[in-house]
Design a protein around this nucleic acid. Structure first.
Lengths: 203, 203, 203, 203
DNA sequence: AATGAATGAGATTTCATTCAT
DNA sequence: CATGAATGAAATCTCATTCAT
């Protein structure tokens, strides 16, 4: 909930928003290795100094992009819960190309950027907790049992499969992806049969 | 199988090997964002020009590191097959911290480096094919069936879970990891009961 | 006596005074190389533009700090004359760490700032003149003679010794400082025996 | 005695020497505030990157200039001892405009540069020690006594007066300088009458 | 009286790469 | 084999200053 202290410029400044948007695009299209304040400026049609006016350091910029991404992510999860097929909607989020690709880039960046790593770790923990709650509610005790998959492990498994697919897509590899997705989807339906029946009935 | 055309210096030169080793260390310890030929040189106690003598461009260097990594990986997979518990040994490879972390760094690099991406994609496809063979041999038709997990999907799933765990470890997050690992291991034992019985008998 | 033409803002504005005080602190603590209007603003908790509102250019700011320092210095000299031991009190001023350190920083700055140099030179000359008057009054003809030290030379000598001690203190060197101070003090007492007797009698 | 570890380029490279010489000139002519690697390059007719090739950081450059200055200074002191009037020759060194001005600039720089400060402090201490030896030899016990000026204090006093004169010259002030110099010179002759007689006889 | 926005200049440093020896 | 020299490009960041409000 803490707002960035080093923020310069109004929260809603068009320029500020443009810089954040451009940064996201650049990272998504060319990878984080292509990111530089100069390039952000060039692409946004701004002077490099203006980028530094709004975000004194590159860390400030990335942290803010990360924060916004985290907020978006949180919001989308809650929206998914409103749908007829919450589990399916959550899974959709996990294999959403652009968002997951962005998350992967940030993982790589976190290696060298302490502030970023800390923020991402914190958000990762919060998200896992929230997902555990969600899985408990939606799936209940069907997960538990001697051979069961505890909800936090389910969260790890789904995130992992989603990310693998996105990463390999980036490479241009797709072998096994459709089959893996199909398996997961079928599995999720078995885990929460009631909701899926509702959805099917409507369709 | 194509050998690098631009390679200079004897294949087995100690200096050449030192450069490759140092590059790996640097990437592993500080992430690919910290990689530069200058830093490699400094860390190895060499002059920057010498690095370029062996590897004219950074791409040449990275490609060679990637090649060696791929060869190591292939070899380790074949070694795993020799063990009492091939499936378990394969899984161990997939959650081996340093190797998987390295693979993730290379995934990020591949974004901007065409030659690297091509090589990695090719190796990724080959590895999947080989794993499919392996799974067919070890698990056979227990995977197939109406709700079954085809071997190429199993490959995707296992790789994904392994990578997710390593990535989160990098962030300092470990919630759900043990449970996910335990689940996978138990699952693998169920898929290939015979080999695991052999192993259990020995233990 | 000339007032600054470019001054903006009320002479006694609290903000204005804060800026001047902060500038002094910054120079004293970190040396003039660390001075910038941005840093002054940051340290004072003000916006950079506000500093420029009061002092359009950095020269304006420094000139005003210099002026105030000169006024302080003049006042302190006159106060010293009121004491029982005027010569001793003057000497105390010359080895006062913070004031002399500041003067040294301004000497360095004057190199590149014409307006500042002119102001400092003028004040330096005035101060010398005043000290000559003072020494004539306090010491009289005891200074003159074939081997004598004319009062303007005494002023140079005392200032020099004081500054040397302060400069070396800044470096962390103190060898010879106490002995030099002791010698000067003893010397001053010999030059003006009457006033020192008065002081001793009181003690 | 320790040689710089980070030195790049041959000790006697013409380019290296040119950079050092240009740096000295720039500092002397415009003060340390005017120093930047860019400006050094421009004035020397070199590309900025070449300056950084020889001196990776500005600190490296300044440290080397400081080291050379210290060596020069040491050498000149020993040369002064060879003259007919060693004390006079030492005093000449202390009021040598360009060398003392440079020393003053470095004092100001030392404020913000730890490595530089440490080096200068060390050299300052060594120089004081050496001067103490010299004064003991040349002046002997004429300095001691109840009201005496110990040799280390003499060193402080002479250095201080010399510096004050140089600093004020920089400002364009000269009042009292000739008188102060004359007084010091006369005083030194009294302290070491024998050597000065020799000199006078020769003249 | 104060401030947000903007900018051009410049500083320091890093980098991959080339080339002559 | 190896290296010293050199370079152009880029990155990050700081700065003083201006201007409109």
């Amino acid at each position: 909930m803490t707002r960035p202290q080093r923020r310069v410029g109004a929260e809603n400044s068009a320029t500020r928003t443009l810089i954040l948007k451009t940064t996201e695009e650049l990272i998504l299209e060319q990878g984080y290795g292509a990111l530089s304040t100069r390039r952000v400026a060039a692409r946004a049609g701004l002077k490099p100094s203006l980028v530094h006016y709004y975000f004194p350091t590159t860390d400030d910029l990335l942290l803010e992009v990360s924060r916004r991404g985290a907020e978006d992510s949180d919001r989308m999860i809650e929206e998914a819960l409103e749908s007829d097929d919450p589990l399916g909607a959550l899974w959709e989020l996990l294999i959403d190309t652009s968002r997951t690709a962005m998350a992967l880039e940030f993982m790589a960046m976190a290696n060298r950027r302490d502030a970023l790593r800390e923020h991402m770790a914190e958000h990762c923990r919060q998200m896992r907790e929230r997902q555990v709650e969600i899985f408990r509610t939606l799936i209940g005790d069907r997960l538990e049992g001697p051979d069961g998959l505890p909800p936090e492990a389910l969260s790890v498994v789904l995130a992992g499969i989603g990310r693998a697919i996105i990463m390999e897509e980036n490479l241009g590899v797709d072998c096994g992806h459709e089959a893996a997705k199909a398996y997961v989807e079928q599995w999720l339906q078995k885990l929460a049969p009631d909701q899926s029946k509702v959805k099917n009935a409507e369709a």
